[in-house]
Design a protein around this nucleic acid. Structure first.
Lengths: 201, 201
DNA sequence: TCCTTGTACGAACGATCGTGCAGAACATTG
DNA sequence: CAATGTTCTGCACGATCGTTCGTACAAGGA
């Protein structure tokens, strides 16, 4: 048991190191622009080793998405679920967590899922489906939290949780694009005001 | 005169045909994913002809951006400037123009500039700069129109045109991403409600 | 008339892409 | 220590990338 885990460790460690670089690279070059050769060069491993650790480029992309999701949960979701009590506070914490995560450039190209969602657009395939599923998961989290807030009476009387979650998620995604494209953190400030206004009413 | 125009016509016609395909392809494959070989195959011309008409891949990308901008102006901006009188009406017409343009899939991957802005992110170079300039041009148009509306007293008293333009542009961009990613026009409906609410207050 | 210019076409270049494979390197077991 | 079974690595493959070159044709200016 312990033996086997230690035996598999070297492969796991290499995988983890590659995936860290892959997630960072993918926010700049795109998931398609991810090349096994460049990844090998960035980690100092031979190309064939990188390849054999994942089996195919598509599997590498899928694993990269999973790694990025783990990072997103650790950096954005978990802190908000821990700090924000519930309802509106938690909703604010999620938005602020996202904005801080973009601002401090956890990934050099901003939010991994905004970048890949825009890239994959309407293309078919497993990679697209996985990104779409996680994007929806994020919006569902916002929506459910908004629903809690609405039921607690913390939002205006006529507020629609689905509509609110839609507006917040699109504003956050759009903010990411503008902030990265112009390397301009003023966008983050605008976004904070927008979220504030939407959560006050 | 007429002779020279007819003499120069074949090159211009080829360029136009290539750029039309290029703009459509770029919203799916990305500006980087645009390959001269595929473009040649799509237009039935030899690869070298496509190449020599633009001189380099970067020039092809720049020309593609210009072509996409012309399409955007024709499909979104001009109708709104013609129909919407001024101020708030015009602002509403611009937003609705954008949403209709996304919904009817003028480009298969949605708005060209949202797709490329997300792709180019923080990369350096002339291609990035041109996309960033046109993205800013679009937001400036929204902002100036919002300012007209505010000065005409059509918006709420405490409204900030820059903030309003930021919110509208990010909501529109985010809507494009969601609508294309999930091939779900319900996002367009949500966006219409969001714009309406923002322009009513 | 020749000469320049611009467009069209085919072939080829070096580089890099994803992928496959035979064997070296390694740890584990007897 | 020897045998065995995984894991890693160097090398090579076909394909495609952007780019270049040589050539052919058509038209305008000298």
């Amino acid at each position: 048991m312990e033996r086997t885990r230690r035996a598999r460790a070297p492969g796991e460690r290499s995988r983890r190191r590659i995936l860290g670089q892959a997630a960072r690279l993918a926010t700049i070059e795109g998931l398609d622009g991810l090349s096994i050769g460049r990844l090998a060069q960035a980690t100092g491993m031979p190309k064939s080793s990188v390849y054999v650790l994942f089996g195919s480029k598509e599997e590498l992309q899928l694993a990269t998405i999973e790694a990025a999701r783990a990072s997103f949960i650790e950096e954005v979701v978990s802190p908000a679920l821990r700090d924000g009590e519930a309802g509106r506070d938690r909703l604010a914490a999620l938005c602020e967590g996202f904005l801080g995560y973009v601002q401090r450039r956890v990934f050099p190209g901003g939010c991994f899922f905004v970048a890949t969602a825009a890239e994959l657009g309407g293309r078919p395939g497993r990679v697209h489906d996985l990104v779409a599923a996680y994007q929806r998961e994020w919006r569902d989290l916002l929506e459910e939290t908004a629903r809690e807030a609405a039921e607690a009476g913390e939002l205006g009387p006529g507020s629609d949780p689905a509509q609110l979650a839609f507006e917040l998620s699109t504003i956050l995604a759009g903010t990411n694009i503008v902030a990265v494209l112009h390397d301009d953190d003023a966008a983050i400030g605008h976004a904070r005001r927008a979220v504030e206004a939407r959560l006050a009413a």
